[in-house]
Amino acid sequence: MSTPTTTRHPKLQEHFYNMDQQLEASTLGMWVFLVTEVMFFGGLFMAYIVYRHMYPHAWVEASHELNWQLGGLNTMVLIVSSLTMALAVRAAMLSEKKQQVFYLLTTMALGTVFLVVKFFEYKAKFEHHLVPGPHFNPALEQGMQIFFSLYFMMTGIHAAHMVIGLGIMTYIVINAAKGTYNAEYYGPVEVAGLYWHFVDIVWIFLFPLLYLLGRHGA
């Protein structure tokens, strides 16, 4: 390893010229990736719009079946986790190792809380015969089964993103504990943060569209 890299930062990959270029490439990369994520969820939202237009009444009825208190609780949980994530990124920029680890672990804990709440919601849907398929309650009006198909696809894919996010965070927090990230090199924390915030934004839209739709009629 006798390359003439005496002045290069150890975390600078060899095809970049300097740390700024590397950081800019990774954040831009994450943003471009998030655009693909927007389009990925976009297909589901498209289906949502079409069927809500076709079955406005069934949509309200189906929305009644969701527990908006739990949905609201999860919204709060995710917003707090976004705050702790933003604080973790700031701690990395300021080279504060202990704060980084603390905020990252808090974010992960909140993410886990979200998934646990989600689990109990899903369980209730199974018990109430609201899962599409042969066991779906046949007394319900036309269109409600599509609502629940979309509900499970949207929240299911969102939850899968949360699980992936927790995996990324595990990697980041282990490295943060080793003191990898500091004012000169914090790209991975920032990129992980962007992803986490995006997952939060998806939920910000899912909550009113799925849970709050039928509340005024209740």
Partner: peptide, 17 residues
């Protein structure tokens, strides 16, 4: 695989979507 019907005409879905 999971019987989640989004395009299923039987339950009111639209294949044209």
């Amino acid at each position: 695989a999971l019987h989640l019907g989004i395009f299923d005409p039987k339950i009111g879905g639209d294949p044209v979507l």
